[in-house]
Design a protein around this nucleic acid. Structure first.
Length: 595
RNA sequence: GGGCGUGUGGCCUAGUGGACAGGGCGAGAGGUUCCUAACCUCUCGAUCGCGGGUUCGAAUCCCGCCACGCCCGCCA
């Protein structure tokens, strides 16, 4: 409703200004502050004051009076407050919001028929996922979900670096060292098992005597050359290691949960000849230079050449990534990549190169995030420093379980949680808290990892907003209009109340109106969040929604109200439940039915 | 040295041109015969890094400076 109303107001305001002889290029439409109960406002009077030769409040009045309220959808009345023109919604706005939000799919926008590939995580398959990179899958997965809600056809890709030097080193180390030389693995999972060889190999290359290192280096070079030439046998050797490590990493990521539609291997673009093809075209391009026996691109706007073919004739990561992105452009309308801030220059060079090759680079977007560091510094798989994501999640679940058990004693509600419930809640809250904490922040801000902060369940955390969802479920479960789903036995809001039959005018208190106004905004949050690729705005929204619901919860008893009021309030609770459930779904955070 | 990013009460954070900078943590005071107190109410606390500028209006835009992070590889 909010989106429709905004469109209508934009149109009507434009017409109003035109009639009065004012320019219509900047309507100054914005969202008013919290204490103003209008839904939309315009500050255009400020800018027109000079031209009108009148003070802003007078101009605002002139506009408000000329505004044709009757013909404008969803608008109830237009008033001024000082220089601002405030637009208040009419009853239809509330009625339709209430009706629309009875649908469990509330918040999903119309399909756009646009295919988007979201590439995220893409961590090198060298060992366990650590929290230094945990931002990537959390942001990436939330972004993919957000785009789906916004109506895009979304695929999630993990780009597997299976062709680089690190992987060659890994393969060599795996084939060279014996398990007896290694420490016990930290967990019973393939990536924890195999990373020991990788670390051992790197230590060896740093510390062994020069002759031994040279032998090792030549073996690593052989592997790299083999991959470059498309040698099947070498590919199989590397693949053994990569597949095992990746399988373990996938399991960890699935806990977040972050899952992928496709794992795209870098070697694919070497084997199918597309990298060679890119090299050939780049050599012919206007920015190509041959310097120091290597082919490079000298960008007009970037103060750093990109080597795309080494002196020894082999390709580089970025060269293959160019082929990779041409492949994306063939199969998708838009490509979004989530990358660490350390990849910024590379991303700029990639974009510029794609432009050089004649592609429309507006189709490519990059979301950068900054690292999660430890107080003592960065995290590294190779050096074995850092916190494993598995450990963080386990600890989060343990602490959440402790919280649930603590609260069990002084629980008012008599719904005896059994052991399975406790375990379910511990998982939903524990993992939800970690994920919410990451997704709620602007990705560009640096984070220093601290256990206490990451696992704080008070604060503005997942449990706070999850609790609201649990409360809505609790009310619905106890309502006489109880509409349990015939198969799952769960509370199904849409079955409990038919919102279209409910009179929204019964929801006339400030608390009810506020909640409804907040619910009405949800589709607009999805729209702008997707547009700007900012999932964190959805997290901010869940807090607004939780605040509004909590006020309503305090002020307006539902189950004890008289029949008609109760019916209307139940519809509002259903609306809040769907909105919160879907907002949490966008964030990839579980929506507990009890906690 | 150059490029990019970040800087908001003691701590964390929202807000990228408009209404007294919104929350949370913390500290203090209250609230449960009533739908879950992982909740709510009130109080305390901010020269929005510093200095200039543009504008009717700046946390937000521009310039300079400071601090921190990242990058500047024929690694990925």
């Amino acid at each position: 409703m909010f989106l429709a109303m905004r469109t209508a107001v934009e149109e009507a305001l434009g017409e109003t200004l035109a009639e009065l002889g004012y320019p219509t290029d900047d309507l100054g439409i914005e969202r008013p502050p919290e204490d103003v109960d209008a839904v939309l406002a315009s500050s255009v009077a400020f800018r027109l004051a000079d031209r009108a030769g009148a003070p802003p409040p007078a101009v605002a009045n002139e506009i408000a009076e000329a505004f044709e309220t009757e013909t404008c959808a969803y608008v109830g009345r237009v008033e001024t407050r000082g220089p601002y023109v405030n637009v208040h919604p009419g009853e239809q706005y509330f009625a339709e919001t209430l009706a629309a939000s009875q649908d469990t799919q509330y918040g999903r926008l119309e399909p756009r028929d646009r295919r988007v590939v979201v590439e995220h995580t893409s961590a090198n398959p060298t060992g366990p996922v650590h929290v230094g990179r945990a931002r990537n899958p959390v942001i990436g997965d939330a972004l993919a979900r957000l785009l789906e809600y916004a109506g895009y056809e979304v695929k999630r890709h993990y780009y597997v670096n299976d062709a680089g030097r690190q992987i060659a080193t890994f393969t060599w180390a795996y084939e060279t060292f014996d398990e007896s030389e290694l420490p016990e693995p930290e967990r019973d999972s393939p990536e924890y098992d195999l990373v020991r060889y990788y670390r051992k190999g790197n230590t060896y290359l740093e510390a062994a005597d020069p002759a031994a290192v040279e032998t090792a280096e030549s073996e690593i070079q052989t592997i790299l050359q083999g991959l470059e030439e498309g040698d099947e046998a070498v590919y199989e050797r590397v693949s053994d290691v990569v597949e095992d490590v990746l399988a373990g990493m996938r399991e960890t990521l699935a806990r977040l949960p972050a899952e992928f539609d496709e794992f795209v291997k870098e070697t694919q673009f070497m084997r199918d000849g597309s990298t060679d093809d890119v090299v050939a075209r780049l050599k012919d391009s206007e920015w190509a230079v041959y310097e120091d026996e290597a082919w490079q691109l000298a960008f007009p706007d970037i103060d750093k050449n990109l080597v795309f073919l080494r002196a020894d004739g082999t390709s580089l990561y970025t060269t293959r990534d160019i082929a990779h992105h041409e492949w994306k452009f063939e199969h998708f309308d838009e490509a979004v990549t989530v990358l660490g801030e350390d990849h910024k220059l590379q991303a700029e060079q990639l974009r510029a190169t794609l432009g050089l090759l004649g592609h429309d680079t507006d189709r490519l977007s990059t979301v950068h995030y900054s690292w999660v560091n430890l107080p003592e510094g960065g995290m590294s798989t190779r050096e074995g420093t850092g916190i494993d994501l598995d450990d963080l999640l386990d600890e989060a679940i343990d602490r959440a379980r402790g919280e649930v058990e603590n609260r069990l004693g002084d629980r008012i509600r008599e719904d005896d949680l059994d052991e399975d419930d406790v375990e379910r809640i511990a998982h939903q809250v524990g993992i939800g808290a970690v994920r919410y904490d990451i997704v709620a922040q602007q990705p560009t801000k640096g984070i220093t990892f601290e256990w206490e902060r990451a696992l704080d369940f008070e604060a503005q955390s997942a449990p706070y907003v999850q609790y609201v969802h649990a409360r809505t479920c609790g009310i619905l479960e106890q309502s006489e209009l109880d509409g349990k789903h015939p198969e799952t036995g769960r509370v199904d809001g849409a079955a409990a109340v038919d919102g279209t039959a409910v009179d929204s005018e019964r929801l006339s208190s400030e608390a009810e109106r506020d909640l409804l106004r907040t619910i009405a905004r949800f589709p607009a949050v999805i729209d702008s969040g997707a547009d700007e690729l900012q999932p964190h705005v959805v997290a901010t929204y869940t807090r607004d929604l939780a605040d509004a619901f909590n006020v309503f919860y305090r002020e307006c008893p539902v189950l004890g109200a008289k029949a008609d009021t109760k019916r209307a309030r139940l519809a509002l609770v259903v609306a809040a439940k769907h909105t919160m459930a879907n907002a949490l779904d966008v964030l990839g955070v579980a929506a507990p039915e009890s906690m």
